[in-house]
């Protein structure tokens, strides 16, 4: 079902875009880690301190900023939708 195999090494631009896509894929995982930290910071035993709440919102804002930068770069790096198949981890047919 696959078309002709993609070349093994990409030009610089294509390479950058691949890494941008990697970042887009990894960002939510970073979010999961950041959002679990209040549990480790003692929130599960004594309840969150005000600083914990502030941290949570700061982490949230950080994710938003990163996501915004990434989205802009992805759109600038060419049409993200014209990405050839096989970049998404779920794209591989079983």
């Amino acid at each position: 079902m696959r078309g002709p195999r993609a070349p093994l090494f990409l030009a610089r631009q294509g390479y950058r875009r691949r890494r941008l896509v990697d970042m887009a894929l990894l960002l939510p995982l970073l979010g999961v880690v950041l959002f679990q930290l209040p549990l480790l910071a003692g929130g599960a035993e004594t309840g969150p301190r005000a600083s914990t709440i502030a941290y949570l919102f700061a982490a949230w804002a950080l994710l938003i900023v990163m996501s915004a930068l990434l989205a802009r770069r992805l759109c600038q790096a060419g049409d993200p939708y014209e990405e050839e198949a096989g970049t998404g981890p779920g794209d591989g047919a079983p």
Binding site: V21, A24, L25, L27, P28, G31, V32, F35, W60, L63, I64, M66, S67, P80, Y81, G88, P89, G90
Partner: peptide
């Protein structure tokens, strides 16, 4: 709100598709 945030910033995984 954290759940939707994670899904949205992870749009490349599912939402795009």
């Amino acid at each position: 709100y954290l759940g939707p945030t994670l899904v949205l910033i992870g749009w490349w995984w599912t939402l795009r598709k």
